[in-house]
Write a protein that binds this DNA or RNA. Structure first.
Lengths: 229, 229
DNA sequence: CAGTTCTCACCTAGGTGTAAAATT
DNA sequence: AATTTTACACCTAGGTGAGAACTG
């Protein structure tokens, strides 16, 4: 998942241990399509049947509250796929659907010897949602600005830098390019908020028009560029 | 460290958790040199002052006894160096000295929240030593057979395959090449033995003449080829 | 034809021994 | 003269988007 989701915590018990988990849930029952000439997403029908959200455990878990207060937890290894048969633990999503990533922190029960929680309902936990991280999953980029932004910010795409693909958007300039996603964020960056938050029912669609993310079989998927620090 | 050290365990408590650790200790107070014309190691004086042995914790630790009874623990990520200032956690050794790797299994104390043991003396543990894994650290290979063996068995050295560097050793043939190290093992493969084992005082030197291992600043080091399964 | 999958060139990142250079 | 360090070519391994091929 690139750009990477990053979170930090305060107020935890220093000597307790915690798992940090992430899952991705559907935002609405709609399927979307991209209107190229209007540069915006439109509703294109009802959603496909939702998939059971896989719980992704951060690879450093569990960490003590003391450790979590000092270091940032980064989900740089998270991968997304549309392959329903995936067995490598990637997050499975439907293309052209709108999604919300969620962060869960789970207090470890010292009695159990095992490898982290499998059902949140069974655990002492708290869930955080950042509505500005909502995205639409795609298998191919619909918007040249997203492509450009990713090429310019991901070292693995260096081979495509200096491209002059941009035509109608060229006047935006490189500077505004970098901050484009954050300008279009549905909500300002703020302190942590508990879930559930009232999901913005409609209307953010237009604001989210440049939030599109790459979803491909067994491949990495792009997400919210800006961290959650 | 290539070839990789691999260990498996039996007889552990299924529900307890254990750390698996490795360290490398000096075998004797000698420095060695390689007599090229005789193809054997000779004593070349007294050892340099010994270095405090770093304890390397296996990255999957801790694991339950149940997990350890099923899976092999592989130290493929272990790295050795002669850089005294190393801060990346590599094992620090003196070149041209003889070394013995040791495997430690430490029962986890469920009460403590932290990240694994730092002093073996403070922990419930058991140490295992495989005398056939003794090696001499080097910064450059002294023996062409070692070079050839590594080139033929390490995927990262593929670019040097099919070389016809071997002259005096050529008659050995590829087949015997592969088994050369094991033929020269100081002891037969056997069941686990507790430490300390009586270190073979002298006499194994000649048997160990082909056990030389690559030691380089911030670089990987070659070790015992054959696993400990 | 919109959307998905596949193959490819082009990168990052890092593990190899070689040979020359530097060190002792 | 023996040993260590450095620069380098050549690999593995895998993350990129482009564009062709495929699918329904």
């Amino acid at each position: 998942m690139f750009p990477t989701l990053r979170v930090s915590f305060t107020g935890l018990e220093p000597d307790s241990r915690y798992y940090v988990l992430l899952d991705v849930v559907g935002v609405d029952q709609k399927r979307y399509r991209y209107a190229y000439h209007r540069s915006s997403w439109l509703v294109a029908g009802k959603a496909d049947p939702p998939l059971a959200a896989r719980l992704h455990q951060h690879h450093d878990s569990p960490l003590t509250g003391e450790q979590l207060s000092r270091q940032t937890v980064s989900f740089e290894k998270l991968k997304l796929t549309n392959n329903l048969l995936d067995k490598s633990g990637q997050i499975i999503l439907n293309s052209m659907h709108k999604y919300q990533p969620r962060i869960h922190i789970v207090k470890k029960r010292e009695s159990t010897p095992n490898q982290g929680p499998s059902r949140l309902e069974d655990e002492l936990h708290r869930t955080f949602v950042f509505p500005e991280c909502v995205f639409i999953a795609v298998t191919a980029y619909q918007n040249q600005l997203i492509t450009k932004l990713k090429i310019d910010s991901n070292p693995f795409a260096k081979g495509f830098r200096d491209s002059t693909r941009l035509t109608e958007y060229e006047r935006c300039g490189m500077e505004s390019m970098e901050s484009l996603l954050s300008q279009h964020a549905a909500f300002a960056r703020g302190p942590l908020r508990g879930f559930p938050d009232p999901m913005d029912p409609e209307g953010t669609m237009d604001l989210l028009k440049h939030r599109e993310y790459f979803l491909s079989k067994e491949e990495q998927l792009m997400m919210e560029k800006h961290g959650m620090m």
